[in-house]
């Protein structure tokens, strides 16, 4: 909007309202994170007296020490990291390959293959049939249930396909004249040209995988070796009121007898920080890719 001349009273009032509202939004968004951060670095018994806002009152690293020395948490972090890295690499590559295939205008089964994928956005078999399928494929109590089923998502596929459709055909044509095969064209020409959109998709997949807990809950809750960080946090959250969670009990027992103590609140705060730190740290640098991807996929969600 273009504005010329002096500010009227209307302008001033509007500006004040807008700036105040936006500052309010920033405060409301950040406060819960900062408060949790403060609680995680504060002495647990002291926190339960209340009144912790943005800064720890009795600074301690004890909450982190207690949690990070639990092999359960350490192991869950490894599993979460492994699934995120594997899913991101494999998922991005496979989605790009299918996107390349269905972006080729002369491909005979182009519409059929696109339709088969797009339909998956609207129907799913439901919890029970999917669970039975995973079980008969041997994916229950298996690490691979985190990676294999979600390899190609229809939404990401459409985003990459839209991007490839916007590239000039001449790249593919000239490569074909030079005698390049389909796979070479994909690997050597399409993939490098798609770098911006692939970065976006990789980030979407990575965030989804890091944040997932329901698949652990459904398929791998019987096997502690395959637990993920989000699932551990979810268990702590669910048992916070009753103190029945095994981790909470174990931690309270471990803390009993020492001068230091942890409380459910402190454990939850500390775990929340451990779980969100990777995203909060990585996020500002990658923000432009996220936004880029949303406008790329546009309304064609």
């Amino acid at each position: 909007m273009i504005r010329v001349g002096r500010k009227t009273w209307e302008d001033i009032v509007i500006d004040v309202v807008i700036y105040l509202s936006l500052i309010f939004l920033v405060v409301v968004t950040l406060y819960p994170f900062l408060n949790t951060l403060a609680v995680s670095f504060n002495d647990a018994m002291d926190s339960s007296r209340g009144g912790i806002t943005l800064w720890p009152r009795k600074f301690t690293l004890y909450n982190y020490q207690t949690l990070l020395t639990r092999s359960q948490i350490y192991h869950a972090t490894l599993v979460s990291a492994a699934r995120t890295i594997l899913s991101t690499c494999l998922g991005t590559f496979c989605t790009a390959m299918v996107a390349y295939i269905i972006s080729r205008k002369e491909f005979v089964f182009r519409r059929l293959v696109s339709f088969i994928y797009v339909l998956t956005m609207y129907i799913d078999g439901g919890l029970v049939p999917t669970y039975f399928l995973m079980r008969s494929l041997g994916l229950v109590n298996s690490f691979w249930v985190y990676v294999v089923p979600g390899l190609v998502s229809a939404f990401n596929l459409i985003v990459i396909r839209t991007y490839i459709a916007g590239l000039s055909d001449s790249y593919v044509e000239s490569a074909r004249i030079d005698g390049a095969g389909e796979f070479t064209i994909f690997l050597r020409i399409i993939l490098p040209l798609c770098k911006p959109v692939l970065a976006t998709i990789a980030l979407f997949i990575a965030v989804d995988n890091w944040n997932a807990w329901f698949d652990t809950f459904l398929y791998n809750s019987a096997n502690a070796q395959l637990s993920t960080l989000q699932y551990e946090l979810m268990k702590v959250l669910q048992s916070a009121n009753t103190m029945s969670g095994s981790l909470l009990q174990a931690l309270s027992r471990a803390a009993a007898g020492t001068t230091n103590t942890v409380t459910p609140r402190a454990i939850r705060a500390t775990m929340t920080i451990i779980v969100s730190v990777p995203i909060v740290v990585v996020y500002p640098f990658l923000q432009r890719y996220f936004v880029h991807g949303l406008t790329l996929g546009g309304i064609k969600e």
């Binding site: 939004l25 968004t29 944040n211 807990w213 946090l233 959250l237 929340t272 779980v275 969100s276």
Partner: peptide, 15 residues
């Protein structure tokens, strides 16, 4: 700042 909560999990947000 306003996009940030979109990228954290519901587990964290629920906490």
């Amino acid at each position: 700042i306003s996009y940030l909560p979109h990228f954290i999990s519901w587990v964290v947000a629920a906490n």
